[in-house]
Design a protein around this nucleic acid. Structure first.
Lengths: 203, 203
DNA sequence: GTCCTGGCTGTACTGCGAGTCCAGTTGACC
DNA sequence: GGTCAACTGGACTCGCAGTACAGCCAGGAC
């Protein structure tokens, strides 16, 4: 077979799909090895235990999400050089992307692990923390750039505003999962977009 | 002993504390019965299985949260009759309440169950759904009242705006849990408050 | 050509927690 | 004195995580 993806990646692919669908604890190693067509011994050869699997999944997921944001806002920047409009376009693209996912966004691994964190060791929890702090820094930077051009109509804490991007997405995904609707996250992002339009006044 | 709280409630109290601290799956029936000082048989006498426990916990939690919102916005209404200011005061009270919780808010059961939903049966998932739809209705009503007095500066979907209250709280709690900080949720609520101030213009 | 190593397979085992079954106890109230 | 609700306690099954280890096989080093 030419689909000779290395076994480790195959395990991660199967595991990620299963975990996003039904949660980490509800995903058994049994079904992962069945899906990846390997033996249980093979699984434990690659991952010491489920914690090691969780860490590897989080690392991959965070890298992918960061790459996605890089790409999204790079495309936005090409369309408009103004920092506010770049942000607004980027959020629109993000909302569209979330909406286009056929069965809705699978849900964020970050929130999922945050709510089951006692299952994980310190390494996993720290990865989670670092990812959110990374997004805070990213968006805080973008908002500061905007604030240099547009005077905010109300004083806001820039760290908190940076966090709000993550928070709105995470919160939207929670609603989406619980309601079994499909566009809550994108609607929440669009509302946040109008917030930014109102907050950063035209000169 | 006069602390003769009936056993069922004692089980629910112990279980809720444990579940909020470390998640549903990570909480064993063993430790619940140990905490409640009953036998395993006694537990299963009250709850057919862990699902029944989850359903009972959710019902209690949702009732408590609804009562809290009722109280909060009733107090706000006493302080100011104007619907916008009532909303702003209520949100301030909510933010303060979240901040005052010594070890931070334990985290919302709704989000927690949303991310482990395959562990639960349809009844539990539906409770979850109904709770969020209830909050949507509650806040949507309040926003419509506001909109009759204050013209929104930008057109917004009122259902989505209603959801945003829940979403911002849930999202904030996710951040708080993952970051191990203690005031993210209240900061997010305060940011949402400034959104409302900007959105609903003075006449 | 052989040897070694990495990447597995397969089996057998321990231990934990959920859930079932059921027989027996205890106290309240009618 | 009988009945019922609210348990206790123990024995059991089942599924899943994790451990241990013996063996297999392909491919590169020498």
């Amino acid at each position: 077979m030419d689909q000779k993806i290395d076994t480790r990646s195959r395990i991660l692919n199967i595991a990620e799909a299963a975990v996003l669908e039904k949660g980490f604890e509800a995903t058994s190693i049994e079904e992962i090895v069945a899906g990846a067509e390997i033996s249980r011994g093979g699984f434990f050869y690659h991952f010491k235990d489920k914690n090691a699997l969780a860490r590897a999944m989080l690392e991959r997921y965070i890298d992918a999400e960061n790459a996605l944001y890089d790409d999204l806002f790079a495309r936005a920047r090409e369309l408009n050089d103004d920092p506010l409009h770049c942000m607004l376009i980027g959020l629109k693209l993000l909302a569209e992307m979330l909406e286009e996912m056929p069965s809705g966004h699978p849900g964020c691994v970050i929130a999922s692990t945050a709510y089951q964190d006692r299952l994980f060791d310190e390494g996993v929890r720290d990865l989670n923390r670092q990812a959110i702090l990374g997004w805070r820094k990213r968006f805080r930077g973008m908002f500061e750039e905007i604030a240099q051009v547009y005077e905010p109509r109300e004083a806001v804490n820039m760290d908190a505003l940076g966090d709000m991007v993550s928070g709105v997405v995470e919160g939207g995904l929670v609603l989406q999962r619980a309601l079994r609707e499909h566009n809550n996250a994108s609607e929440q992002i669009m509302l946040f977009r109008t917030y930014l339009k109102l907050l950063f006044a035209d000169k």
